[in-house]
């Protein structure tokens, strides 16, 4: 017997899907922003900080990179709830995502910072720039430019990976789809629709990052090189 697809009843819930997709994007936006800041600070600490700080950051990076996001989220969100520390679920999820993506960003930014040649820093020193100025203008900008494609991949993966956080009760795209499944019983169709929406979001996100790259890296725009 042939299966009869019924997308009609699933698509009736389009507004819910859109609402969920929007939530996913909001979560990804804040986690990316804060995760980038955290990761960059950790990368700085790991490349130039005192020994104890380097070890601390190294430990954080290794622990997070070698355990699943889902376990981290359970540990953090259910754990905090168990000791009575209540917070809005959106906030908890963003924190879990930031802790997670911060560690990956640390490694990528560290590679970028270490790729800056000694001579660049010497030249800036000889021009009289302060340490902070050197870091900001001579190290950070070109380092970020160099690893930008890797960063983009990280953040797109983060957006996709955030789907598992529906398990802690956040109503992002995957979370709302559970509700649609339970009322329509059209599981397969729901997953097809989810796949299409996520794929579209991946493309949109890549496009946005591309445009952002053009905006903040004028050299990339001018020379059209992938660097």
């Amino acid at each position: 017997m042939a299966y009869e697809f019924d997308f009609q009843s699933v698509l009736a819930y389009a507004p819910m899907f859109l609402q969920g997709a929007w939530t996913t994007l909001i979560l990804t936006f804040w986690a990316t922003l804060a995760g980038f800041v955290l990761g960059t600070l950790c990368a700085v600490a790991r490349t130039g900080g005192p020994r104890w700080l380097r070890l601390l950051v190294g430990g954080y990076v290794e622990v997070i990179r070698n355990t699943p996001l889902l376990i981290q989220a359970y540990f953090l969100i259910f754990g905090l709830a168990s000791i009575g520390a209540r917070m809005p679920i959106m906030l908890g999820v963003v924190i879990a995502m930031v802790v997670n993506i911060g560690s990956y960003t640390t490694e990528v930014m560290r590679a970028g910072i270490e790729s800056i040649k000694r001579g660049q820093i010497e030249a800036a020193e000889c021009l009289g720039l302060s340490r902070a100025q050197i870091f900001l203008h001579v190290v950070l900008r070109p380092a970020m430019e160099r690893v930008y494609p890797s960063l983009v991949s990280l953040y797109v993966l983060l957006m996709l990976g955030s789907s598992v956080l529906s398990a802690v009760g956040v109503e992002e795209l995957f979370g709302v789809s559970n509700r649609v499944q339970s009322v329509t019983y059209r599981n397969f169709e729901v997953f097809i629709v989810l796949g299409v929406i996520y794929l579209a979001m991946t493309l949109v996100l890549r496009g946005v990052f591309w445009a952002l790259g053009q905006l903040i890296f004028p050299r990339r725009r001018r020379l059209g090189t992938a660097l």
């Binding site: 001579g119 660049q120 030249a123 000889c126 021009l127 009289g128 001579v138 900008r141 070109p142 890296f217």
Partner: peptide, 16 residues
Amino acid sequence: RRDVGIVFQSYNLFPH
């Protein structure tokens, strides 16, 4: 370093 300028063999211009 405001009084002294130095130029290196490898230029060391800032690429970005």
